[in-house]
Nucleic acid binder design. Structure first.
Lengths: 211, 211
DNA sequence: GTCTATAATTTGATAGAC
DNA sequence: GTCTATCAAATTATAGAC
């Protein structure tokens, strides 16, 4: 059917990832997509903002699937974390520091500028956190523990993406991945400890002198 | 003398933080700074890019001083981390999710677009890491340990800023701060352990069955 | 649905009077 | 150094033929 619409979104996604929302012009989008100018406003009557929202959701879904692929059911969360960050670091490096998070740049740009676009980025991020939550809960964490850890994993990834792209040093993403894996391991150990040692349910007991 | 130049930079800094580089027009800058249009090109002959680079360095220096204030000599790094993230979360909240990192948006925007601006952001980030490194080394970590931890602290802060602004939930920054403080505490404990127990210098020994 | 021409506005930047 | 008028180009968006 209308492959043009898809090409427009794919082209926009690629340009947004590298240049952000305001750094990408509509003209550049239709040129990249090899689509006629008028088709853009045919498929997206509300213009750039509508195309932007659609692109954010599409890019977010794809990246979310990638997260789900690494954090698949039955996979060790510690290993998954290490592998995911390492793969991300490799992609950042191989793309010459162009391809990191597909929507982070746009998210920061529109956070205080466009409520529809901000909402789209928020929904995407929330879906990523939910994916991580689910897997961490399967691994034994409570929902509260899982959510806190998911926020840390998200932050370590996104923050290290910023640092890597700015300094052109992808090892920052690997380093953040090591810290992330350690955080996951610690969280899982705490769970194991609590289950194995009921006394640990009383935090006050930890105030006793170290052995 | 020329307060006009300073006002231009200050206005640009404020606009960049909220709207990014491409989302901020030169006209808007001079209006915000209440400066005549011509003055901009008088003080910054190379135009927006030159003003942008100057602004990145200025904003970066101010935020770097803030980091140095929290991580002052003699301060407990764990407490400093918790307090810094909490203060950041509060600022994000009180500014209605407008004021987070002063240069992160610009850093992502220009990473693949302008080498002079990218370099400015890289230098700023590097200076922040160095400030953190110094304090962590004073607290007893090796340079290698300190740098890894600094990258994690940076990433947790920047990543949680993205999440907080997108979702309009500043508690994400607090949560990341808790994880950051925990990472600092763990790193310092490892240091203490190694100093107290020379056997720990041989990682292989940890492979022995748990007691 | 496709494509071109063009409108309307905004962009970064300059010239030149004061 | 200040300020205005203005430029050329790029921006988003529309109209209308095909």
């Amino acid at each position: 059917m209308s492959g043009t619409r898809d090409r427009l979104i794919e082209a926009t996604a690629e340009l947004f990832r590298r240049q952000g929302y305001h750094g990408t012009g509509v003209k550049q989008i239709v040129e990249t997509a090899r689509a006629p100018f008028g088709s853009m406003y045919h498929f997206f009557p509300a213009g750039k903002e509508e195309l932007g929202a659609e692109t954010i959701r599409r890019s977010g879904a794809i990246f979310g699937q990638l997260i789900g692929y690494f954090y698949a059911a039955g996979t060790d969360p510690v290993a998954a974390t290490r592998m995911f960050f390492d793969a991300a670091a490799q992609t950042v490096h191989e793309s010459d520091y162009a391809d990191a998070c597909p929507i982070a740049t746009v998210a920061l740009e529109v956070a205080s500028m466009s409520e529809p676009l901000r909402l789209a980025t928020a929904e995407v991020f929330e879906s990523w956190l939910t994916t991580l939550d689910t897997h961490l809960v399967e691994a034994g964490l409570t929902k509260t523990q899982a959510r806190k850890l998911s926020v840390s994993l998200f932050s370590l990834l996104e923050g290290s993406f910023i640092l890597a792209r700015a300094t052109r040093d992808h090892t920052h993403v690997r380093a953040a991945g090591r810290a992330a894996a350690a955080a996951v391991r610690t969280a899982l150990e705490k769970r194991a400890t609590r289950r194995a040692d009921p006394a640990e349910r009383f935090p006050e007991s930890r105030r006793s002198p170290a052995t």
